[in-house]
Amino acid sequence: MMRIRITFSKQGALRYTGHLDLHRLWERAARRAELPLAYSQGFHPQPKLNIAAALPLGFSSRCEMLDMRLEHDIALDGLRDRLQETLPIGIQVSSIEVVDERAPALQTQVAAAEYEVTLTEAIDGSDLKRRIDSVMESASLLRERRGKQYDLRPLIEGLDILPDGKIFMRLTAREGATGRPEEVLDVLSIAFEGTRIERSRLIFQS
């Protein structure tokens, strides 16, 4: 058994490929690249793939991560290129590394995620800064999602305007405590439709 961790970007058309379909995509990529992907036992064997954190539909990402279990050890050199060749253009592999077989499951290690929001429709910049400040100064931001009330404020670890005009967010991403960029945009009175959101970094527990 061998466990490898793949870091990749998800862009362009692939923004519209959801979490389950992405699993499928990697299973097929493994078959194309002739990797000895391991499967679970049983009547409906499932490939042993773990994606760090689901990316909402429509978002792009520069930093997706996935663990793949292989039936036996393989050489890593040349693997990135071999794999890249078998992937659709929207997926670019940036690195592949071997991970300790006993390391905890990838999904359980994610602590936070950073996002960059590009505004595709012009809004008043000076006013935006003021709104961001007021969000950061507030003690709580009670909101409702799917009929449940929750406080968005503690999930916002960082919020700022980048020099290039994009909005930067760092949101908690733990099980049961995941901040959603579209909720933050809503608080800032920015229409989700007028934006493009990219996940730029995943932060893991150390």
Binding site: A13, L14, R15, Y16, D21, L57, G58, P88, I89, G90
Partner: peptide
């Protein structure tokens, strides 16, 4: 939406 974007 994946129906309408190509990139396959």
């Amino acid at each position: 939406p994946g129906r309408y974007v190509g990139g396959e």
